[in-house]
């Protein structure tokens, strides 16, 4: 019985760690802040969830509620963090326009007469220092 439990925990741990790793890879490889948000919030949260569930399976019954509570907390708060960071990122032009297929928010803002302030386009990683928006290094 404990062997089965250990196997389940090991599988959950390894899968969770792989998701965390792939999330970190995405964090590195994606070109703009909002895309990195996808990797950070989705893959990392899933990885953490799997690891916490794996730990809850293996620990005595007293610990399981706290672990699951933390997992639930992360699950429901990661989207909040990502929405706030994403909003700030969009408003501070941290979106790579070259990779953007369509931007209906900019269209809507333009239609409303309050276009997003465009100062010579966005900053791909190579052109650091040329965009006056990048004061926050």
């Amino acid at each position: 019985m404990t062997l089965l439990r250990d196997v389940v925990t090991a599988v959950l741990f390894l899968t969770g760690a792989c998701f965390c790793l792939l999330g970190a890879v995405g964090l590195l490889r994606f070109r703009d802040t909002v895309s990195r948000l996808h990797a950070a919030s989705k893959a990392q949260t899933l990885g953490l969830l799997l690891i916490l569930v794996g730990a809850a399976v293996n620990r005595p019954l007293r610990d399981a509620p706290v672990l699951l509570l933390v997992a639930l907390f992360q699950l429901f708060n990661a989207p909040i963090t990502s929405q706030i960071v994403g909003r700030t990122a969009y408003r501070t032009h941290a979106v790579d326009r070259r990779r953007l297929f369509s931007d209906e928010l900019a269209d809507r803002l333009a239609r409303d007469g309050t276009p997003l302030r465009e100062q010579g386009g966005l900053t791909p990683d190579k052109e650091e220092g040329k965009n006056p928006d990048d004061e926050d290094r």
Partner: peptide
Amino acid sequence: PRALDRIMALDV
């Protein structure tokens, strides 16, 4: 390059 990237990295 941006502060937001660093904030995200810290959270991760």
